[in-house]
């Protein structure tokens, strides 16, 4: 009896925490179903007196919304793929190749992780201008293909793979490429999925970069696109909320499907410093 009570109260507590985290989403959905003027009347009125689907109709008829959505998908997928390639290769080099100054170089890279990217935005704008990247989606994709955090994670993981495995492969005549493709990559699928998920979410929600670097309305990404939903002096919050509800769908679905691999992936890297 006591254990049942314990279990029920434990589950109740967890449920409460879960709900607490979700409350803001409830507000979001609720606001998306209200008329723009009603958004500020009473947020606690979760279920609007009159369900107002007009915001969603506007979205579906919007000239650009789904174009932005598609742009976001494309940018995110390209980023994920490029990052996957460059990061795994660099991690492999740091884990398995011996060369002078390796440790120093790695430390140098790690220090980049600590630098807030937003601080160099003006310099980057000028630089991208020189490189012809401004107002192209490459200005978002290319910088994001490099990520120290995942080089670090993957290096940890690669170092954890017993050398015997790869040395046996070398004796068998496999080159480094063979080891990389046949041993390292297949073994690290869950880690790669973790990386994919994080990369996906970060790039998907990136606001500052597309906001500054992309100026054409039809090249814009969907997060910044929401900013276009405005009235003469101020934002159309109701429409933005409706737009946000649809934006959240994809990362949410991804997380739901990949959660299992995701935890496995982090377990495998055994983040231990």
């Amino acid at each position: 009896m006591g254990s049942l009570l314990k279990k029920v109260s434990f589950n109740g507590f967890m449920l409460a925490i879960g709900l607490l985290m979700i409350i803001p989403f409830v507000f979001m959905i609720s606001a998306s179903l209200k008329a723009p003027a009603d958004v500020f009347i009473n947020p606690l009125n979760i279920i609007p007196d009159e369900i107002f689907t007009f915001n969603y109709e506007t979205l579906f008829n919007h000239e650009y919304y789904f174009k932005w959505y598609w742009n976001s998908i494309r940018v995110v997928v390209l980023t994920v793929i490029f990052r996957g390639v460059f990061v795994t290769m660099a991690a492999y080099a740091f884990a398995r190749l011996e060369f002078k100054g390796k440790e120093l170089l790695f430390l140098l890279l790690l220090s980049a992780m600590m630098i807030p990217q937003d601080t160099t935005i003006v310099a980057r704008f000028l630089l991208y201008g020189v490189m012809g990247l401004n107002n192209t989606q490459w200005a978002i994709i290319l910088p994001a293909t490099f990520d120290v955090f995942f080089i670090f994670l993957l290096r940890q993981f690669f170092m954890g793979i017993p050398k015997d495995l790869s040395e046996a492969a070398i004796i068998d005549g496999a080159s480094h490429f063979g080891i990389y493709f046949r041993i390292m990559i297949p073994l690290s699928v869950p880690v790669l999925i973790t990386m994919t998920l994080f990369t996906f979410i970060w790039t998907w929600n990136d606001f500052v970069n597309p906001f500054i670097f992309i100026s054409d309305i039809e090249k814009q990404l969907v997060t910044v696109g929401l900013e276009y939903f405005q009235l003469e002096a101020g934002q159309n919050y109701a429409l933005q909320m409706a737009g946000s509800c649809l934006i959240v769908l994809i990362p949410m679905a991804l997380f739901a499907f990949l959660q299992k691999y995701f935890i496995e992936g982090i377990t495998m890297t055994g983040v231990k410093g």
Binding site: T58, I217, Y228, F229, Q230, L231, E232, N236
Partner: peptide, 11 residues
């Protein structure tokens, strides 16, 4: 370039 990006009448 202009800032009439919204859905209001003037824009």
């Amino acid at each position: 370039w202009h800032n009439f990006a919204g859905d209001d009448l003037r824009a």
